[in-house]
Amino acid sequence: MKQHTPKPLVLCEGKEDLIVIQTLANHAGLDGKLTFQQYCGKDKLRAYLHQLKVSPEYARGEYSRILVTRDADSDFASSWQALKDSIAEAFSCETIKLGEWVKHESGPEIAAWIVPGPGKTGMIETLCLDSSRTKAPKVFECLDSFMACLAAIHGGESHEKTRFALWTIAAQGAGAQKRLSLERAIPNLPIDWDGAAFAELREFLVGIAS
């Protein structure tokens, strides 16, 4: 169905980022006020932005603003630089600053955001885990010791995504058998959507729709 009112578009790095950020937006009272898309990983961002700029939705003016997000991973500075470069190349706007809206040509305003937040390393999974520690401390005691045990066996830390995947199963208790995807699991996870961990991203999302 064609959209008749322009909405802000939030571009997310992957499916899990999209699910978490969309759920956060819904908890912040933005249900239906934002459009979400995912670009299947940072390596696809450049091509995705070029395609987005010539898409029918863009040409018809269906996006009032565009927010491009990606994970910082282990190096905030290089992730931010890569994100800035991709946006600058696709939309010819050189003055991108984190969390600031930039007008370009005749198109919608564009902003960029690095998850988990300005100057921080990590990813969307980091925010979910950080926001849940105080709500489900016993699950984390168990999970942390299990991860430490695995690290000792394998001789190195597991990726944060591994911790997150195990946590999404463990945090559901008896319902874990129904965890086919994060989309199904997320309503049952003890994530504190109103907590401090999500504050910066939540406030920025609220600001988009205002």
Binding site: Q51, V54, S55, P56
Partner: peptide, 18 residues
Amino acid sequence: TTFGKEEMETAIEFNREM
């Protein structure tokens, strides 16, 4: 709006309507 093979290839890859 004009576009070429690179954008169309991406649209096909992402199953995006063009």
